[in-house]
Design a binder for these strands. Sequence first.
DNA 1: TGTAGCATGTAAGCCGTTACATGATTGA
DNA 2: TCAATCATGTAACGGCTTACATGCTACA
Lengths: 193, 193
Amino acid sequence: MSQDRPLPTTSYALLGLLSFGRELTGYELKQFADRTLRFYWTSPAMSQIYTELARLAERGWVDADERSGGERTTTHYSISDAGMGELRRWLRDSTPEFMQLKHPVALRLLLGHLVPPDVVRGWLETYLAQLDGQRAALREVLEGIEDDDRYAFPAHVARWGLAIYDEEEATTTGVEQALDERRVSGRGRRRRS
Amino acid sequence: MSQDRPLPTTSYALLGLLSFGRELTGYELKQFADRTLRFYWTSPAMSQIYTELARLAERGWVDADERSGGERTTTHYSISDAGMGELRRWLRDSTPEFMQLKHPVALRLLLGHLVPPDVVRGWLETYLAQLDGQRAALREVLEGIEDDDRYAFPAHVARWGLAIYDEEEATTTGVEQALDERRVSGRGRRRRS
DNA sequence: TGTAGCATGTAAGCCGTTACATGATTGA
DNA sequence: TCAATCATGTAACGGCTTACATGCTACA
C-alpha cells in the first residue's frame, strides 16, 4: 500500500499540529498554521492543506470524519494512532537540516551601494514596522499558552521566535546608525584604518 | 520583446552578484552564491544557475562571452548596462517581503513532548555544532571584505548573519538549560504559578 | 440584502531540485 | 593513471502558489 517515498517536512508539520489532539477542518488547520507554523516554517496555502490532508488520510495517518450538517458536508480530521506513531518515528529518525533563511531585506542591503541612501533607509524602516507587527502577533500566541504546561514546548518555540525578532530589530537599527555615521564621515576612502 | 512576467527574486540575486563587476562562468557564480547568497537567501542548484543565466541573457541583462579555449567552450557572463539599470529599478521599485524562516529544529521542538528528552537534546546539540560551522564560514567571508570600503554593504550583511547566529546559539543553549531544569523540578503539574 | 467569513476543492503553472549525461583539465 | 575539480547542460518531477469555481452561514 502507498509508495514509501518520504513525505515532505510540511506534511509532518501539519500532522504535528493535529497531534495536539483537536479535530480540525482544513480551514481550521490553515488558521492554526497561520498562528504557529508561519513563524518558523511556512503556512501552506489552503489548496495545499487539502492536498496534504488527503495524502495523510490515504496513508491512514489521519482519520477523516465527514459530517453532513444539514446541506453541507464538512470534513473534520484527527490524527490516528498510526499517525502518532509515524510522527514519533519521524521525530526520532529524521535529521533536521540547518535553518534556512530567506531575508529579502538583507539580500537588497547587499546591493545598497546601487541605490540612494534613502531607499536603503526605507527598506530598514519598513522592515522594523513589519517586525513590530509580527512580534505582536507572536507575543499574543505566547501569552495564550505560556501558563499551560502542556504547551511548554510550543512556548519555547514562541520565545525562540521572539528572540529572533529582538535580534533583528537590534541589528536593523544598528545598520541604520552605521549608515548615518557613514554619511557624516568621509566618502571617497577605499580602505580604512 | 520577451514577455514581461517579473523574474523571481533569485534571478535578481544572481544579477546582483554579477553587479560586483567580475566576469563569471556559471560554475564560478555557483561558488560565489555558496559563499554569500546561501546565508540569507538560497544558493540555487547548478542547473538552476545555468537556466537563470540563459534567461538573463535572453533579456539582455547579462552578456555571454563564449570562449573556445582549445577544445572546450566555457561561457563567461557579465552584467550589461541594461542589466545594471534593471537591477537598480528592481531595488527601488520592488517591496521586500518579510523575512521567511525555515527552522527544522524549532519545528521539531514544537513537538518535543512526543519524544524522550535525549532526542530533543540531540537536536539542539547538533544544531549548535552546525551553527559553529556556519559561523566560521561566514566569519571567513567577512574577514575577506571588511577592510574594503567597496564592500561596506556586503560586510553589513555578513555581520547581520553573524548576529543571527549569535542569537541562535544563545537561544539554543537557553532552551537546553530550561530543559535541564524542567527535568529536576516536578513533572506532573498542569499549570504553574 | 449583501458582504464577510466558513468551507472545499481543481487546474495551471512556476520555482527549484535531483538524477542523468558528458567531457576537459589538473595534480597526486 | 586515476580521482577530483572544472564546466555545462537536459529531463523529470515534486512542492507549492495563484487563479478559478462553488456554495453555505451569520450578521449588519
